[in-house]
Design a protein around this nucleic acid. Structure first.
Length: 271
DNA sequence: CCCTTTTCCTGCCTGC
DNA sequence: TGCAGGCAGGAAAAGG
């Protein structure tokens, strides 16, 4: 599923491509991914003009004039694709936004995505985006101090749960978490209170370097950008490498269940 | 049938 | 004891 690097890359592309376009219509195939009725969704968006596109964590924010914001969460295996005038929309889409120049933005996911529309003045009360935590690539909000504050508040949870909770840090999912924990030598079930000061330092740096490096490469090689092109990030250390040797010690990478998610770990490097 | 894994909700537990 | 907040587990719109 798209995580922060893929979503940030998409938002950047959408900002360049969609800015200034006016919405001519909406096409809702799966009403259950909306937060309002299809009629209300259309009333909010039709005739509005794209001002700018930003992101936080796994959410994309399309700010429109005069008063609406379109919120996208691509869920698992999701895509947002741009279509020039005359190009057909994908048949598996859940929804699409049609622009008055004949171009369109379609959106598809295979499990649990969201396409929400709100009045921009009510954006702060949108529950799913309003409670998002720190942007890990923003130097001014994600600092060693703000990170430490989260680790102290959540010291009773396991470290993987804390890092993946979008209310703490926004944008880390079950793909990037794997190598972030490996790079820090942390087992996903380690209690947060038992993460040492030096491990916290390494963990902070690992979050920034993993996500930042993947963003520079346009995201994961098995995810698509706005134009259907794959990213160039594909070098996992232990993530999704079950049975292959650990790059540090050579032990075989194991796949284990951690709560309701899977974790890939080196059984000797991660404790 | 089993696997993937996001987000919210529920109910239970703990601690004040 | 009672309440509030934390937290684990389950449910929900598929597809390979």
């Amino acid at each position: 599923m798209p995580e922060l690097p893929e979503v940030a890359n998409l938002a950047r592309q959408m900002d360049r491509e969609l800015r200034g376009k006016r919405v001519a219509g909406v096409d809702v195939v799966q009403p259950r991914c909306l937060n309002v009725s299809p009629d209300e969704f259309g009333q909010l968006l039709v005739h509005a003009q794209v001002n700018r596109v930003t992101s936080r964590g796994k959410w994309i924010f399309v700010d429109l004039e005069p008063e609406a914001t379109l919120l996208l969460n691509l869920g698992m295996g999701g895509e947002a694709l741009f279509h020039r005038k005359g190009e057909p929309l994908p048949g598996n889409r859940q929804s699409a936004v049609l622009f008055d120049d004949g171009s369109a933005l379609s959106q598809h996911f295979w499990w649990f995505g969201y396409v929400h529309a709100v009045k921009t003045v009510e954006l702060a009360s949108h529950a799913m985006t309003g409670s998002l935590g720190l942007d890990p690539l923003d130097d001014s909000e994600f600092t060693p101090d703000t990170f430490e504050k989260i680790l102290i508040e959540k010291e009773r949870s396991t470290i993987k749960t804390v890092l993946m909770d979008q209310k703490n840090i926004a944008g880390i999912g079950n793909v990037y978490i794997q190598d972030i924990l490996f790079a820090t030598g942390l087992h996903p079930l380690r209690k947060t209170a038992d993460v040492t000061a030096s491990e916290r330092h390494v963990l902070y740096a690992a979050i920034r370097s993993q996500l930042g490096h993947a963003l520079e490469l346009g995201g994961l090689a098995f995810e698509k950008d706005l134009y259907g092109q794959p990213g160039r990030f594909m070098e996992f250390l232990v993530g999704y490498r079950e049975g292959k040797p650990c790059p540090v010690c050579g032990a075989f990478v194991q796949k284990i269940r951690t709560g309701s998610t899977a974790s890939f770990i080196c059984p000797t490097c991660q404790t």
